[in-house]
């Protein structure tokens, strides 16, 4: 903990020193950035931009996870589905995020649906591949037990399948969230009239680094909070039954 704090403080110190001796237009000091942040917050624009970006992160993340979980599960359980869908997944996995974004904007127009779909499509193959591994690792002995005791399909899903998939869902969530929020900014920068990515583009056009950091830092901090308060507790919750390593 102390080492982490020291590391963070040294980063701050480096920033102050660099700002002092460098060109303040290229790198404003922390105080200038906080002043810009205060201005953006006071006008409400900072929170409006963060809220809309968060909404896009949530929508595309949930879409990608739901579709990826369904597809990954089907691929993990059925060899035919796996053979049919695998080439598509491999193509999507290797297609640069930017290509998917630009193509969707061209095909569907510069609208919200295209933006969300582009982010979701970028995340989809990762979620699919991770959940597929989980579906392949499902214990057939437990499945047989559930059938012997006549568990309903819902009970089987909830009490037998999902707990086994949970570590894979948690892994996909963790890697997915960090991927999604970075891509959302690119999508906003290219083709949305609002959001943190849009504001960063504005700052870029004006060469206003203080404003750029005033939007980027609070948003990054917010995503770290989501990670600490939502993702990590979820991971701990789904693995609570595992014996603690001695």
């Amino acid at each position: 903990m102390a080492a982490r704090l020291l590391s963070l403080l040294s980063l701050l110190a480096l920033w102050i020193v660099a700002a002092r001796f460098g060109d303040p237009r290229h790198l404003p000091g922390p105080l200038a950035v906080f002043a810009a942040m205060g201005k953006a917050a006071a006008s409400g624009e900072l929170f409006a931009a963060m809220a809309i970006t968060m909404a896009r992160v949530a929508a595309s993340f949930l879409l990608a996870m739901a579709a990826g979980a369904a597809l990954g599960y089907a691929m993990g359980r059925r060899a035919l589905v796996d053979r049919l869908a695998d080439p598509w997944v491999v193509v999507l996995l290797n297609l640069p995020a930017l290509v998917i974004i630009v193509l969707l904007y061209i095909w569907a127009g510069l609208n919200e649906a295209a933006a969300i779909a582009a982010v979701a499509l970028n995340k989809l193959p990762n979620a699919t591949v991770t959940i597929r591994e989980g579906a392949r690792a499902l214990d057939p002995a437990l499945d047989e037990m559930a059938r012997a005791f006549a568990f309903s399909p819902w009970k089987r899903l909830r009490h037998v399948v999902l707990p086994q998939l949970a570590p894979y869902i948690a892994a996909a969530t963790r890697s997915g969230l960090s991927l999604v929020w970075k891509i959302v900014l690119v999508v906003e920068l290219i083709g949305r009239p609002n959001g943190v990515g849009f504001e960063i583009n504005e700052a870029f056009q004006l060469f206003d680094v203080a404003m750029l950091l005033a939007y980027a830092l609070p948003f990054t901090a917010a995503m770290l909070v989501v990670e600490a308060l939502v993702v990590q507790p979820f991971e701990r919750h789904v693995s609570r039954w595992r014996p603690r390593p001695a």
Partner: peptide, 11 residues
């Protein structure tokens, strides 16, 4: 049906 497998097969 009640069944006991070779392994306990508990969740």
């Amino acid at each position: 049906l009640g069944m006991v497998f070779q392994e306990p097969r508990l969740l």
